[in-house]
Structures are given as structure tokens and as C-alpha cells.
């Protein structure tokens, strides 16, 4: 068989599969977002109502706006904290040696842990009666002694953030260590010979060369933060009230618990739009070398 035919045959199954499992549902979601779309009334999945679901979300639903703000706040806080802390940890661990490479090996563990399980374990850790972290905070900062973390809107949000960054910092640290190790040693050594050290060395030589990797880290983490669902579901289930209800959680509740598939699809599509921009930015970095 000639390569010219073969090469298309080889990609065909994958393209079909991706189409069926990702593109089709995306398009079908868009269609649903223009329908009445009640799960318990199947014909309504074909009843078109234009942009009514969208205007409803924008104009009539404070809960929608609440979850938008929660998601944005959550994304801003988790992205900045994870990036900064991961960068610090990466700089700390990058030089290698027995202790550091040992710790590097362990970094893989939190990421291999199911996010749902991370949610569960943080609920455990922050249990006001016998949670280890609760006890720890209570010991050093007596204000927090015996506080019911997950019952307080601000503290519950904080616990969600902590669980999130606990799960993500190790992985992003590994990414950044990879980025640091691909910086040519000579550039750093040249700068040292030229007289730069410490902070200047980092700012003038290391950081600029790490910038592309850092950008990838920020974009990747933003994407996953915006999508957050698993931990929040297991940790607070959006509560107390709707204090930690992210967009994914909001869509899940409206679409599947309340059966408003059409409305949920419209909110879901509102969420897809920022993703498109982030993906575009990310793709630019992936293809930058070619």
C-alpha cells in the first residue's frame, strides 16, 4: 500500500473516536443549550427557545453569578499560589543530590491520587474533633481551635484551595524542575563568572529562560482550576450554602440533579469560551518549537 493512503487510514480511527467522544458532545451541548431541555420531558429536548437559557443565566440567576465569582476567585488564588510555591520548591529541589532527588521521586504521589480521594482526605484532616490539620492550626493559632472549618464560608473556601494546591504543587514542581534542568548550564555559569549571584542571577538569567515553561504551567493550571469539580464535590459539595460552588458544580447540579439539561448546557458553553482562549495560548506554546 502506498504511504499516501496508509497515512490517512492510520489516523482515521483516532480521529473518528475523538470526534465521537469529544466533538460530537460539544456540538450537541451547544444544540441543547438552545432548547427548553428538561430531562423529565424528553420532547423538550427539541423545543428551541433561542438564547433564553443564556439570558436567564445572565439576568435572572444570582446563583450563576455566584458560581462565576467563586470559580474566578478559586482560579486566581489557586493558580497564583501553586505557581509561586511550585517555583520555590522547584528551585529548592533542582540542584539534585540524594535528599533532593528522593523528594523529587515522592512528588509524583499526590498527582497519582484521585482528586476525589484528595477531597475526602482533606475533609478528614480538617475534621474539628479529630482532624490532624485542625489540631495543628488550633495549636499554633488558637483562634482556629475546634473551628468547624467546612461550615464557615471563607474557611471552607480556604480548605478547598489548600486541597487543590496540595494536589497540584508537586506535579507542577516536577514540570518546573524539568524546565530548570533544560536551561543550559553554561548560561548560568557565564553569569556567575560575570559576577551575578543569588537574586540577580535568578532574575536576569534563570527566570527569562524559564518563562516559556512558567507560562505553560500557568495556562495548564488555569484550565484545570476553571474545571474544578471532584475535590469540591467530595469536600464541601459546594457548601456551606453555595460558598464553594464552582461552575462545574453548578452545571452538574442544574443539569443532572434538577434535570435542566438545556440550561446547564448553556452555562457549560459559557465556560467553554474562556477555555478556547486558554487552549489557543497553550497550543501556541506546544507548537513553538516546530
Amino acid at each position: 500500500m502506498r504511504d499516501n493512503t496508509l497515512k490517512y487510514l492510520l489516523v482515521l480511527p483516532a480521529v473518528l473516536l475523538v470526534f465521537a467522544t469529544a466533538i460530537w458532545p460539544l456540538v450537541e451541548s451547544l444544540r441543547l443549550s438552545f432548547t427548553v431541555g428538561r430531562l423529565n420531558r424528553p420532547p423538550s429536548l427539541q423545543q428551541y427557545i433561542g438564547f433564553e437559557n443564556y439570558t436567564w443565566a445572565f439576568l435572572e440567576e444570582p446563583a450563576f453569578w455566584n458560581s462565576v465569582w467563586v470559580t474566578l476567585a478559586y482560579t486566581a488564588v489557586t493558580v497564583s499560589l501553586t505557581t509561586v510555591l511550585a517555583l520555590g520548591l522547584a528551585l529548592l529541589l533542582a540542584p539534585g543530590g540524594r535528599l533532593r532527588s528522593g523528594v523529587q521521586t515522592l512528588l509524583i504521589l499526590p498527582f497519582a491520587m484521585s482528586p476525589a480521594l484528595i477531597g475526602v482526605s482533606f475533609r478528614f484532616m480538617f475534621n474539628p474533633e479529630f482532624g490532624l490539620f485542625d489540631a495543628f492550626f488550633g495549636f499554633f493559632m488558637p483562634v482556629f481551635a475546634g473551628v468547624s472549618w467546612l461550615a464557615d464560608p471563607v474557611l471552607a473556601f480556604a480548605v478547598c484551595v489548600m486541597a487543590d494546591i496540595w494536589g497540584w504543587i508537586p506535579f507542577l514542581t516536577l514540570v518546573l524542575i524539568g524546565g530548570l534542568s533544560s536551561i543550559p548550564r553554561e548560561t548560568i555559569e557565564a553569569a556567575q563568572v560575570d559576577g551575578a549571584g543569588g537574586w540577580r542571577l535568578f532574575r536576569d538569567v534563570t527566570l527569562p529562560q524559564l518563562a516559556p515553561v512558567l507560562a505553560v504551567v500557568v495556562i495548564l493550571k488555569s484550565i484545570f482550576s476553571l474545571k474544578t469539580f471532584d475535590q469540591v464535590f467530595m469536600l464541601t459539595n459546594g457548601g456551606p450554602g453555595t460558598a464553594t460552588q464552582t461552575l462545574s458544580h453548578y452545571i452538574y447540579f442544574n443539569g443532572l440533579k434538577y434535570g435542566q439539561i438545556g440550561y446547564a448546557a448553556s452555562v457549560a458553553w459559557l465556560m467553554v469560551i474562556p477555555m478556547i482562549f486558554l487552549t489557543y495560548a497553550y497550543a501556541k506554546f506546544v507548537f513553538r518549537k516546530d
Partner: peptide
């Protein structure tokens, strides 16, 4: 391949589609 970059980017992009979006039509 013809359209190679488009295919690769699309495949990459599907990874970033929120799972809640995909699951609604599949549930139905």
C-alpha cells in the same frame, strides 16, 4: 498530512473541554 496541525490542535483542545460539557449529551 493534510490538515495535520488542525487535527493535532483539535485533539489537544478536547482535553481542555470541561467534563461537565461532554457528559450532558452523553447522559441523554
Amino acid at each position: 498530512l493534510r490538515g495535520e496541525t488542525v487535527m493535532l490542535v483539535t485533539i489537544l483542545a478536547t482535553q481542555f473541554v470541561p467534563a461537565v460539557v461532554i457528559i450532558l449529551p452523553f447522559f441523554v
